[in-house]
Simulated scan of single mutants.
Amino acid sequence: MEKAVFGAGCFWGVEAFFEGIRGVEETRVGYTGGHVESPSYEEVKTGTTGHAEAIEIWYNPWKISYEELVIKFFECHNPTTMNRQGIDVGTQYRSVIFFQNLQQLEVAARIKSKLNQKSSKKIVTEISPAKEFYQAEEYHQKYFQKNGTLACGI
């Protein structure tokens, strides 16, 4: 198993999207990329911790490649809006790829560059080294499975 970590807005919908992809074996949502140790949702939602709502994906590289996951990541949200996805606004909703190693960095940078060449709007997705991932509270895990399809931000 290998790990990928992405931030693409409200983590509820992002998790639901990736759970349906062949080769994705496990997901969990949480917070990463900030400066506060073990933040809570109440802290992260203020936008002052530096953390992004993120998804940690454990995948089988024999069934899906990291490159395919990055392509799916760019398909599941709008990577041209700075610190915003739909009604959710703030740095905690930024578009970001947290790379685990140099290979992931190279793949993410190459795909972002290709998309920027094709897009009429600039791709603002950050590509940052992975930091400590703090699992979100249990009620956020598998949110759509537990609660149906409520919109993020409610």
Score class of each variant (00 low, 15 high):
Tyr66Pro: 10
His51Gln: 09
Tyr31Trp: 02
Asn60Ile: 09
Glu42Met: 02
Leu150Asn: 10
Pro79Leu: 10
Trp62Thr: 06
Lys112Val: 04
Gly23Val: 00
Gln104Cys: 10
Arg22Glu: 13
Leu69Ser: 12
Gly23Phe: 02
Lys63Leu: 14
Ala16Tyr: 15
Phe73Ser: 01
Phe17Lys: 05
Glu2Leu: 14
Lys122Tyr: 08
Ala54His: 03
Glu42Gly: 01
Thr27Ala: 05
Gly153Asn: 09
Ile21Gln: 00
Thr32Val: 05
Ala151Arg: 06
Gly20Phe: 00
Ser38Lys: 10
Val124Trp: 06
Lys142Cys: 10
Ala16Thr: 13
Glu26Ser: 12
Phe98Leu: 04
Lys121Arg: 01
Glu132Met: 03
Glu106Ile: 06
Phe73Lys: 00
Trp58Gln: 01
Glu67Gln: 11
Gln145Ser: 11
Val89His: 01
Phe6Met: 11
Glu132Thr: 07
Tyr139Asn: 13
Thr91Trp: 06
Val89Cys: 02
Gly34Asn: 10
Tyr41Arg: 00
Glu137Ala: 08
Ile123Val: 04
Ala4Ser: 07
Tyr41Leu: 14
His35Thr: 12
Ser95Lys: 04
Met1Asp: 04
Val5Gly: 00
Glu126Ala: 04
Ala130Pro: 02
Glu26Arg: 11
Val44Trp: 01
Gly23Ile: 01
Ile97Thr: 05
Pro129Trp: 07
Thr80Val: 09
Gly47Glu: 14
Ser95Asp: 12
Gly153Asp: 08
Ile87Cys: 08
Gly50Thr: 02
Asn60Gln: 02
Arg22Trp: 07
Ala108Lys: 05
Gly50Trp: 06
Ser40Ala: 02
Gly7Asn: 04
Phe133Ala: 01
Ile21Ala: 00
Trp58Leu: 00
Leu105Thr: 03
Ile71Cys: 09
Thr49Val: 07
Gln104Val: 13
Thr91His: 15
Thr80Arg: 08
Val24Met: 00
Val44Tyr: 02
Leu115Gln: 10
Val107Phe: 04
Thr27Glu: 07
Ala16Arg: 15
Lys131Met: 11
Pro129Glu: 05
Glu56Cys: 07
Ile64Leu: 06
Phe11Pro: 15
Glu132Gln: 01
Phe133Glu: 03
Cys10Trp: 03
Ser120Leu: 09
Gly23Asn: 08
Ala136Ser: 06
Lys118Asp: 05
His51Phe: 15
Gln117Asp: 12
Ile21Met: 07
Glu137Arg: 11
Gln145Arg: 06
Glu2Trp: 08
Glu138Tyr: 14
Lys112Gln: 05
Ile71Gly: 08
